[in-house]
Design a protein around this nucleic acid. Structure first.
Length: 564
RNA sequence: GCACCCUUAGCUCAGUGGAUAGAGCGUUCGCCUCCGGAGCGAAAGGCCAUGGGUUCGAAUCCCGUAGGGUGCACCA
């Protein structure tokens, strides 16, 4: 039963309106003592030509006998509703306990396809904290949409093509060795890449040489491709190690190199449509009428660019997946780039340009300043995860030394902490990375939610993981129990809201709210030590909370150990 | 110069048209002979950057200003 909907109907009936006119304005009072739902009557004042206070009083009068309402009260201009608590908890809890792992899922996105482009790191560079956000937010949006019934396609659009590989080839030939690259992997690639930049400052002809090698790659020349592929394989192996730790996977690894042979026809199409024009030796699409700088398509040396590849990839994805939406998870500083090439797609006459969505997030920096791979000014992803895991191990050794499979749990909690932290605020906020904050597991953190889940599991275990089916819901009338039930009831709507706003934090925060409400419930109400019927009813609450916390964490890409 | 984003408690952030602006961290004080203290309770801490406007009502919407961040031609 959807109480909000039913109340809207009742108000509409009493006020002579349609339920749809009422529903959007139904709200939750700031304080639970004021009621479970509220309707402000200000907006009726004009229509009914009466003061809001009077309207509220009259409507309250008319609704005294509604069965599922315990009480309707006029508080000044507000109409406050108190739902029948036992009816409410029955409705929520039976649903959660029946649906279990499916609670929260829906068919909102049935038949729709959503392509999500996330993580997309540049290969041949180490995977660092700057890559975390795209990876983790993208993965959460993937899981969330999947729960809503969408068909999701996760794409890792690797930065695996471009002049930087020409640079790498030159650097390898001049200063590298096969042994060193095989032994040290990306670290060695990084070393020679940095060396290249140092040398190129003194000798600009190195840049021309690098561009030359990239042209060879584009032409498919054997030696160039062989080296590139070698660098590629080494990088992917290292990335996959990190993805495995994070529990993230992709449906396709079609990176930029994948589009190498697919760009020519697209450039041809731009030409045919009269969009391409020469400027300063390069080929551009003019966007003056869109109030933006031009979009560069072909360099004066004939090379392709970022935008060329993104446009080609978008056309390919539309053809291959026929998506309803295509999301791009990148930092906010790429705003203009996306706005530009989206506009090019529009000019090409494709009305699905409006289904292309840049999902930006704020920049990550260190307390000591900007991230810079070249200057070694980074925190590597593996280092971060390992630090978090070892901090977790330390805490386990202190608090729960007899825990079985400690190492496994330390991984789940340590990695969960990192993921949770990144999904806790709205995307757009800049992040200043801090070890101190990162490794503090008190308060609104992943470990807190996991701990709450483990605690709930522990109680259930002590009760033999079972309770009687005929729950007496009237025993759950206290404020703490009601607060928990309300949050359980709101959970499905929060998933939908997170998807609509493309903001996983909506879900993350809800889980924190639920964990807080549960911990209060736990402190206020003895469970195992209470009288049989009460114990049974409270176990139903504990069980439902465990289910929802676990489901919610799963959508964020975080595991929920039963002990920690 | 033009464009985009941000500004709410000491710090990190929720709240985006309605009732007394909320969390967490940090600080201070309580709570384990009692279901897991990675917990719970309480205190202190706010001119919601600023000036106008719209509205019965603005932290929330619109315009201006200031401060901070970012982007603007052959990197991605």
């Amino acid at each position: 039963m959807d109480f909000k909907n039913e109340i809207a109907k009742q108000i509409a009936h009493a006020a002579g309106l349609q339920a749809e006119e009422v529903l959007p304005f139904l709200e939750v009072p700031p304080n639970a003592e004021m009621g479970d739902f509220a309707y402000p009557c200000f907006r009726l004042a004009k229509v009914l030509r009466q003061a809001p206070n009077q309207i509220a009083a009259q409507l309250a009068e008319k609704m005294q006998d509604v069965a599922f309402l315990q009480k309707v009260e006029a508080a000044g201009p507000y109409l406050n509703f108190f739902v029948d608590k036992s009816l409410f908890s029955r409705s929520v809890l039976t649903k959660v306990l029946q649906q279990q792992a499916d609670y929260g899922k829906s068919e909102l996105g049935k038949g729709k396809t959503i392509v999500i482009d996330y993580s997309s790191p540049n290969i041949a560079k180490p995977f660092h904290v700057g890559h975390l956000r795209s990876t983790v937010i993208g993965n959460a949006l993937y899981q969330i949409h999947q729960a809503l019934g969408y068909h999701c396609v996760g794409i890792n659009h690797l930065g695996d093509w471009g002049t930087q590989f020409g640079k790498l080839i030159v650097a390898y030939q001049k200063w590298g060795s096969k042994e060193a690259v095989e032994e040290q992997g990306i670290q060695e690639l990084m070393r020679i890449y940095v060396k290249f930049h140092e040398e190129a400052e003194k000798d600009p002809s190195l840049d021309d040489e690098a561009r030359g090698w990239f042209v060879k790659m584009q032409n498919g020349e054997e030696e160039a491709i062989r080296l590139w592929k070698w660098f590629y394989d080494i990088s992917i192996r290292e990335f996959e190690r990190v993805y495995k730790m994070l529990g993230v996977s992709f449906d396709a690894y079609t990176g930029e190199s994948f589009y190498n042979d697919k760009m020519a026809p697209v450039v041809e199409e731009l030409k045919e449509k009269g969009l391409l024009k020469e400027s300063e030796g390069a080929m551009i699409v003019d966007l003056e009428d869109e109030n933006m700088p031009p979009c560069l398509i072909i360099r004066k040396d004939g090379g392709t660019l970022y935008a060329t590849r993104d446009i080609t990839a978008a056309l390919y994805r539309k053809k291959t997946y026929n998506f309803d939406k295509c999301l791009y998870l990148t930092a906010l500083d790429q705003n203009l780039h996306f706005a530009q090439w989206f506009a090019v797609i529009k000019k090409m006459g494709y009305d699905w340009y409006k289904d292309l969505i840049h999902v930006p997030f704020g920049l990550v920096s260190l307390e000591s300043g900007k991230l810079s791979t070249r200057h070694g000014h980074v925190v590597l992803m593996e280092e971060l995860l390992n630090q978090s895991i070892s901090e977790t191990s330390r805490i386990i050794a202190e608090k729960n030394p007899n825990l079985e499979n400690k190492d496994e749990v330390a991984k789940q909690v340590g990695i969960g902490a990192v993921i949770f932290n990144d999904l806790y605020n709205s995307r757009i906020k800049d992040v200043v990375f801090s070890w101190e904050r990162m490794l503090n597991f008190d308060g609104e953190t992943g470990p807190y939610v996991q701990y709450t889940h483990a605690r709930a599991c522990s109680i259930l275990k002590k009760a033999g993981n079972t309770f009687a089916a005929d729950v007496d819901f009237s025993l759950l009338g206290d404020a703490a129990s009601t607060a928990v039930c309300k949050l359980l009831a709101d959970y499905p709507a929060k998933i939908a809201e997170a998807a609509a706003k493309l903001e996983p934090y909506i879900l993350t925060r809800h889980l924190v709210d639920l964990a807080q409400a549960f911990n209060k419930f736990y402190h206020d109400n003895p469970i195992l030590n209470s009288e049989e019927a009460t114990k049974n009813a409270r176990l139903a609450v504990v069980s439902a909370v465990a289910i929802v916390l676990k489901n919610g964490l799963a959508l964020l890409g975080i595991q929920a150990p039963e002990q920690m």
